[in-house]
Simulated assay, not measured.
Amino acid sequence: MPTYGYICPDCGPFERFRPMAESAEPSDCPGCGTTAPRVILTAPRMAMMDAGARTAHATNEKAAHSPDFSTKASRNAGGHGPGCSCCASNKKPSRAVYTADGSKTFPSARPWMISH
């Protein structure tokens, strides 16, 4: 639940955890019980979040009408990290060996495994 700020005319500012459905409603002061209106006292606490949560929030806020598309130009622009399999220039050749009947085997990797 988010934290909302309120200001009591007698006791001063206070904060309360409330559901988002009740965000616009006033709250009772914990000190004197007077109904207090909601006010914005602090900025959202995005700076104190861990990087994963910030990235998730940023991803959720992206517009649905402008999604990211993967194109060859965007992959060559350095959009992927090192070792990316789709655009790496130093791809290793496959160790698979194809037999006459079309089956595939890896003779040097794990000889005890049955190919599928």
Rank of each mutant, 00 (worst) to 15 (best):
D68L: 06
A58M: 11
A88N: 10
K72L: 02
S27N: 12
G52F: 00
A64W: 14
G78M: 06
G33I: 08
A109H: 00
R16E: 11
P9F: 01
G78S: 08
C8W: 05
R75W: 01
M48I: 12
A109R: 13
K62E: 13
F106I: 04
A58H: 11
P93H: 04
P13D: 10
D50L: 12
D28P: 06
M49G: 02
P67K: 09
C84G: 07
F69D: 05
A96N: 01
L41Y: 09
R110G: 07
I40F: 13
C29Q: 05
A51W: 01
T42S: 14
S85Q: 06
D10T: 07
A53G: 00
R75N: 09
D28G: 09
R75A: 12
R110E: 11
P37Q: 02
D68Q: 06
K62V: 00
P67Y: 10
P111C: 00
L41W: 02
D28V: 04
F14Y: 09
G52Q: 07
R16W: 15
S94H: 01
V97C: 00
S115G: 15
A88V: 07
H57S: 03
P107T: 10
T55M: 12
M48A: 14
F14W: 04
K92Q: 11
R95V: 13
C29Y: 03
E15G: 01
P13V: 04
C32I: 11
T42N: 14
C84V: 12
G83F: 06
R16S: 09
S74T: 15
S70F: 01
G102K: 10
T59H: 11
T34E: 14
S94R: 06
R95Y: 12
G33N: 06
S66G: 06
H116Q: 10
S103T: 15
T42H: 09
P2Y: 01
R75M: 05
P37C: 05
Y6D: 03
K92P: 08
G81K: 00
G31R: 05
M48T: 11
C84S: 07
Y6Q: 06
N76A: 15
H80A: 11
L41N: 09
C32N: 07
P37G: 10
P30H: 14
T3D: 02
P67M: 02
Y6K: 01
P19I: 05
F69G: 08
C84W: 04
R45W: 02
G12C: 10
K91M: 05
E61F: 12
K62H: 13
N60C: 14
D68I: 15
E61K: 00
V97W: 03
T105N: 07
P93K: 04
P111Y: 06
A109T: 13
M113E: 10
E22Y: 07
R54D: 13
Y98D: 14
W112F: 04
R45G: 04
H80W: 08
F14N: 02
M49Y: 15
I40G: 12
V39I: 11
S85C: 09
I40H: 12
R95N: 13
G81R: 08
S103V: 02
S85R: 03
A36P: 00
G79W: 09
Y4D: 15
C32R: 04
G78H: 14
P44F: 01
K92I: 07
K104S: 02
D10P: 03
P26L: 04
F69K: 02
D101K: 11
